[in-house]
Design a protein around this nucleic acid. Sequence first.
DNA 1: TCCAGATAGTTGCGTTTGATACGATGTGCG
DNA 2: CGCACATCGTATCAAACGCAACTATCTGGA
Lengths: 152, 152
Amino acid sequence: MAAGPLVLDTFLPYRLSIASNLVSGAIARIYQSLFGLSIPEWRIVTVVAETDAITQQEIGQRTRMDKVTVSRAAIALERRGLIERRAHPGDGRSQLLHLSATGRTLYESVAPKAKELEERLFGDFTAAELDTLTSMLRRAEAAALRLEGEAR
Amino acid sequence: MAAGPLVLDTFLPYRLSIASNLVSGAIARIYQSLFGLSIPEWRIVTVVAETDAITQQEIGQRTRMDKVTVSRAAIALERRGLIERRAHPGDGRSQLLHLSATGRTLYESVAPKAKELEERLFGDFTAAELDTLTSMLRRAEAAALRLEGEAR
DNA sequence: TCCAGATAGTTGCGTTTGATACGATGTGCG
DNA sequence: CGCACATCGTATCAAACGCAACTATCTGGA
């Protein structure tokens, strides 16, 4: 671990926040202008596409989005006809989300664009570097969760 | 670069956002409860401590915070007596921020706590890993900035 | 069976955020 | 020197966010 005095510019949580905000900001602007999707909406479309049918609660767990955020984005997506919500057989409180035909079509143009953006952002990383980065991020996530856990 | 279909869970911008939100969230809560400082306030205190006297505009550039965010946090810090604002000699529009005695005292307890948190979050990373992570984050920042640049 | 407590999703509301407009000051060109 | 334009910081307003309260439904134990 870095010894010595605090220097904001090299303080890792700070660097992480700066990098994440820049990357998220760039992507958010592009998705908004190309597809009219916010980040929560985009995440939901992707998760629903990957699972075929999923509850809002599960989406929240997977993506760490607040259930309120999921609820609002799901309502917006339904209004736009991109997803459909059916009663959950066996649990009347819940509903299963899945893509409409329109939603699936949209997803099929969104997904390649996502890969392209990833390529543009991380294209000069080697495969090994990408693995390293991913695993470091997961380690940091786990540590942050531990820290939160202690607090309560 | 990762080939194959989009899988949200391994999509790097997504992982970056999740990690950053968890880390920032944990730190924000701790700083709020220990020192009553928001993240923007904390950043300003740190930058001012490092530079001794700096304009709000420069703070914004360094930390990538909006000038509105900086303005509000600076006003709050001045009200609490942690920083002082003096006329900028040679530019009447601007002002130089510096720490008050109280602010310096606070900073001297904030800084070690920051190092401690960094240690708790990234303590199991080797020095080499930390360097790698930092430089990868900087590369991603640069790529995101290029992407933004193209958009306009 | 019935009721207390837990859970899914929505709504309300206060806070935070950032784009835009503004007032004040500074700068450069004619 | 004067006027158009840029820049610093603040104010304003609308949108995003997340906690807490709420409704409806489910679950387990007496």
